[in-house]
């Protein structure tokens, strides 16, 4: 990307300081995930019963849990799972939603059938759909990604379908078709490039809500295996200690909020610089 291009993309963030905050939190999470072994002061798995449930102090900034493990180290290591789930869900939603949406819009007969199937899937509330899938597939990280991703595949397909239908009506696309341009050319040259910005918006929102979905699955014991540190797992393990050690649940919860919030802020800022004709496809439901 050229320098001017970079400035163009940064513009919505500079105009809105709160969106810059969102970008900052996101960057922080990525850094924490990348450098977790170096950043974390302790081994996240090291058990020390002598310091069970210590409140935050100079040695253990976020305190320790019921096994004496350092909460800060576990919070930092959990960032990896958060990013893995988030990007996994986004990639699944895009990899399925974009082809289905584009093809449905270009081939009306096929599209009618596919969109009806999407409608049927949308009749299942997303967490319920995820739970059903987990029952079939069994709990694991990959299945959590798949189960949450399926719910966002439908919304992504809907948006891509709507966008492509609109693009197809554009005069220059019509002109290109009338001059005998093939479907592949049409998709590559006119449709996909125009989908990039709106999909970036969608990706931000999906990433944000995937954090909440993953946390719910972890909390119910149906997400990542309990031995893997994740914010949802930390909450699930410590929930019974909430009255004795309220700080235990505070930090992992705050991290979920911070990641989801920052992605929502980023998505919101990006949405505001979208072409107004496309903006209305993104309802306030994310």
């Amino acid at each position: 990307m050229s320098r001017d291009g970079a400035i163009l993309w940064l513009k919505p963030f500079i105009a809105r300081p709160i969106a810059l905050l969102g970008l900052g939190i996101l960057l922080g999470t990525i850094l924490a995930a990348t450098f977790a072994p170096w950043l974390a002061p302790y081994d996240p798995y090291a058990i020390d019963p002598s310091i069970r449930l210590t409140p935050p102090n100079a040695l253990h900034w976020f305190g320790t849990d019921q096994f004496g493990r350092d909460t800060l180290s576990r919070v930092i290591h959990s960032a990896r799972m958060a990013l893995l789930i988030g990007s996994g869900v986004v990639m699944f939603a895009l990899a399925t939603g974009v082809p289905i949406g584009v093809l449905s819009a270009l081939f009306p007969r096929l599209g009618h059938l596919l969109m009806r199937m999407v409608d049927v899937l949308m009749a299942f509330p997303s967490l319920l759909l995820a739970l059903g899938l987990i029952v079939v597939l069994g709990p694991s990280v990959a299945n959590a990604i798949l189960a949450i991703g399926l719910g966002y595949m439908t919304t992504t397909t809907r948006i891509v379908y709507g966008l492509t239908l609109r693009l197809r009506m554009e005069t220059y696309v019509e002109a290109s078709r009338s001059m005998g341009a093939g479907t592949a050319w049409l998709i590559g040259k006119h449709i996909l490039p125009n989908l990039v910005s709106p999909l970036l918006v969608q990706a931000s929102f999906v990433f944000a809500f995937a954090q909440l979905g993953a946390a719910s699955l972890d909390f119910l014991g149906l997400g990542a295996p309990p031995e893997i540190p994740s914010w949802g797992n930390m909450l699930a393990e410590s929930r019974t200690f909430i009255t004795r050690a309220p700080w235990l649940l505070f930090f992992p919860g705050m991290m979920i909020v911070a990641t989801a919030f920052s992605l929502n802020l980023v998505g919101d800022a990006l949405r505001d610089r979208l072409d107004p004709r496309f903006r209305q496809l993104f309802s306030e439901k994310g």
Partner: peptide
């Protein structure tokens, strides 16, 4: 508020 897990 939309970014806060309900169970938390």
């Amino acid at each position: 508020m939309a970014s806060i897990p309900t169970f938390w």
